[in-house]
Amino acid sequence: MSKPFLSAAKLSFASFCLFLLASCQQQPEPQPVKEQLESSHVQNDAVDLTLLCQKLEKNMLDINSQRTTFALEQINHDLKICLPLQTLSQQQQLLSRSNEMYQNFLHVDRTAAQQLAFEQYAFDMAQHPTIHQSHFEQLHIRDQYLLKHQGQAYVQLADSASSAIHYQRDPDYLAKIFAPYMPEAERVFIENLALQNVEPAFANQALLIEPFEISRRALVWEEYIHKYPKSSYRKDAQHLLYEYKLFLFKGLKKSPVSSNYADPQDVHVSSLEEIKKISRLNHSELALQAKKFLQFLEMDSGQRLQAAGAKTGLSAWQQLELYLNLRNPVPHYKKDCFSDAICLER
């Protein structure tokens, strides 16, 4: 009686133990160490990113004319990381710092002899870009460095509309580094101005672009003002529109649209054709002014005097200016809008 009973009891106890062992093996093991490590890694990344962005502005201020293009490229890389995390006011603060950063980086304190050597070298390179000039060694050591590193970190040599040959930041810089992370109105302004200023509008009191391009740019800014009335760049867009209207209807000293606006034959052919084309557009202030321009060319002196408000002693251009109501919407404007992707303080 006892042996079969004990054998059955042993068998039952062994089965129970096997069941418990199987149950224990099926339960997933807790991984508190792994979870803590992952959480710590995420927190460290956040802290590192916060620290990077906090130090960014100081790093930009530390850039001077002793630094390398590599230092600029590192800051531009950090800007791409931090800009998406900033408000518009913070982005514009960094943009202002970037202006200062490039000014400091590109500054060269030359002697009179070094200035002359720089201008001569730049002129010779423009005439014969593949010829190495023997007086390269006469240049300031910073000029030697910058000339060797043109094209890096958005550094370029330019003969702008408003000054002699000099180094400047490529207009594409703001369009590629800042614009993608800014609100739509600011992004569109920067991208359009960068695109326009790749090809200068004028130099030495002469227009460098055709009437077609002048009117195209004017229409871009007219549309921008209507579409983004609350843009932080609204006044700059208004000034640009005004300037391109002057280029279209008046020209510049060395490339005037007309000598005296005596009649249609007294207007440059390509300008007249473009103004006629613009006059046929709808829903455009520029189109209305183009129509009035053509009307003015058909007026006699009495009609023009009346159109100018019966003011005597005015030139033909001054009479036309009054008739078109072509006034500066931003008086006393002091910025340069023709060298970068934003309008810069002079």
Rank of each mutant, 00 (worst) to 15 (best):
F202E: 05
K277Y: 06
T312R: 15
L56G: 04
Q27S: 13
F16K: 11
H226D: 13
E119N: 08
C337A: 04
V188A: 13
S162N: 07
I209L: 04
F70P: 00
L95S: 09
E29Y: 07
N44I: 15
H132M: 14
L272G: 03
M60V: 02
A9P: 02
A203E: 03
D48S: 11
E273P: 05
T50V: 08
F16P: 02
L344T: 08
K254T: 05
K277F: 01
A341G: 12
K148Q: 15
T50H: 07
V220I: 15
F249L: 00
H128T: 12
Y181N: 06
D48H: 07
N282A: 11
K227T: 11
C24G: 10
F70V: 12
P32A: 15
A185I: 10
I81G: 10
Q156V: 14
S23L: 14
M299V: 01
S23D: 06
E298Y: 07
F19N: 06
N192Y: 13
A179K: 05
F202V: 03
F338V: 02
C82V: 02
L320Y: 01
I177Q: 04
S12K: 07
L208T: 08
I342P: 02
E184D: 09
L6C: 10
P180Y: 12
T50I: 05
E285S: 12
A14N: 06
E29Q: 12
F202Y: 10
V155E: 00
L116R: 09
N44A: 15
D300E: 05
L207S: 14
L85E: 07
Q150G: 10
A203R: 10
Y181T: 06
D143N: 11
S279Q: 05
P183H: 04
K3M: 05
H77S: 15
F19T: 13
Q289H: 07
Y154S: 08
C53Q: 12
E243Q: 09
D62T: 09
G313Q: 12
Q319N: 04
H135A: 08
A206M: 09
K55I: 09
A126V: 08
L21K: 04
E57G: 08
K292M: 04
S301H: 07
F293L: 05
F249C: 02
S255G: 02
L246N: 01
K245G: 00
Q265E: 13
S339F: 09
R280E: 15
L208V: 02
F16S: 14
A153C: 12
P30I: 10
S258Y: 00
G251M: 07
E100F: 15
S7T: 03
Q114E: 15
A117C: 06
D170Y: 08
L72H: 07
N204K: 08
A9W: 03
